[in-house]
Design a protein around this nucleic acid. Structure first.
Lengths: 231, 231
DNA sequence: GCAAAAGTGTTTCAGGTACACCCATGG
DNA sequence: CCATGGGTGTACCTGAAACACTTTTGC
């Protein structure tokens, strides 16, 4: 109707990128979420998801890496994959003013973590109270993890690593879906995952005896920080 | 590590909201996508998805309504539901500078459109070339529609209206999934959709004869612009 | 009554779930 | 050789797909 109607608005919203950094801990047999105490107010000292403000022209994945390296102290090389989850637009979610929050997931390879373990890693099954609306973000995104496991190869490979055993796959599945599948059925599920192969190897040395589990491997994938995101 | 590390960046990215406005046309038996010629450069005159810059503190859904009313000339009351799709962060997607694009869907009730049909409605099966990266946005979001149909009640009810026939349900399903289900099977699918009920009524007057299809209705839902989005 | 289009019931098949059984290891 | 735990094969069950058949309309 009004032909002079224009795109321009005086002030634009700030965009923050909040990361749900996931890491599988084989020893604890749990999937951990990276959280860090906030350095400044608001919520100074409280635990929160690592997040940064998105810079002008910055890619979401780059901002996510910045958040994970800066706030969690995780080396960039330890981040195996990054992907998109959802966007939260509640204007009052940040007391400093309206801020859009784009939630991303990132998977961390515990093998590539440098020594000192600065950040707090909370078990996904027992996440402490977090600053801002991060509790809600975690709650809303948890079912999205469940959907991605075994369906999104980048996510799954990022979480489990290039090589893993059936036992570890069982643990991860239990952590993300809530119940532990029968090993036989999970094996068949994994057979249907493109790019995933059984190897002839068996992992030795289980803590308490038992048959050594099969080793699975992703086939060609060059790897690096991969994601099949719209960008 | 560096305790003085700060959230603040000098300049923040602009956020645009681009809307995939869907409308079911019972006569054409097709699902249409709302597109409009751009008023200004860049891409002046080219067709594009309706989009606006997100104002400071503005909700995504409000921006989407602003886009649909302003760019498509659709009355706000005709928008039956709004929801989130994905975020696109390619920095070069807008020649004017880096802009984040949050893609939303909106459903439009053709019955509540005011007379003059300003906007172009393109069949989802035959979308013309669009400005910016909107071709890619449409391509990426199309499978998301398929997932939402019969699973997201807000989306489904928004698209089909409060009351619809089996024949219309068949048309919509075919438009969104690519193939037409057997009427019997679709009926059973709809029986499993929460809130959806068969009525005793039959629609009369088919164009070319044939048995009059059943009428389906959503039960209590107050309606209005509904969405079950994280916000 | 013939064509068109929905609705009903039934068959079939694939997928997932459950489980009984076998195998390999530590003690 | 026993406990532990993964692997193999198989039975079962649910849910979706396909189709024959019936019902209701327009011409």
């Amino acid at each position: 109707m009004n032909p002079a109607q224009d795109d321009q608005r005086i002030e634009s919203t700030l965009v923050s990128v909040d990361v749900l950094a996931l890491r599988f801990a084989p020893d604890a047999r749990a999937v951990l979420l990276g959280v860090a105490p906030r350095a400044h107010d608001p919520f100074g000292g409280d635990l929160a998801l690592p997040g940064v403000l998105l810079g002008r022209g910055e890619r979401l994945r780059d901002a996510a890496l910045r958040a994970v390296t800066g706030k969690l102290g995780v080396a960039a090389e330890a981040v195996t994959a990054v992907g998109q989850l959802a966007t939260f637009d509640e204007p009052s979610r940040d007391p400093r003013g309206p801020t859009l929050s784009v939630a991303l997931w990132a998977t961390v390879d515990p093998g590539r973590l440098d020594g000192r373990d600065g950040p707090t890693w909370a078990s996904l099954g027992d996440v402490p109270a977090l600053a801002f609306d991060h509790d809600r973000i975690v709650a809303d995104c948890r079912p999205l993890f469940r959907d991605r496991l075994w369906r999104d190869p980048a996510f799954t490979a990022g979480l489990l690593g290039a090589e893993f055993t059936t036992a570890q796959a069982l643990d991860v599945t239990e952590a993300l879906t809530g119940d532990r599948p029968y090993p036989a059925n999970l094996g068949r599920t994994m057979d249907r995952v493109p790019g995933l192969r059984r190897t002839a190897q068996h992992a030795s040395a289980l803590p308490k005896g038992g048959r050594p589990p099969l080793v699975w491997r992703w086939d060609p994938v060059p790897s690096g920080v991969t994601t099949r995101d719209r960008s």
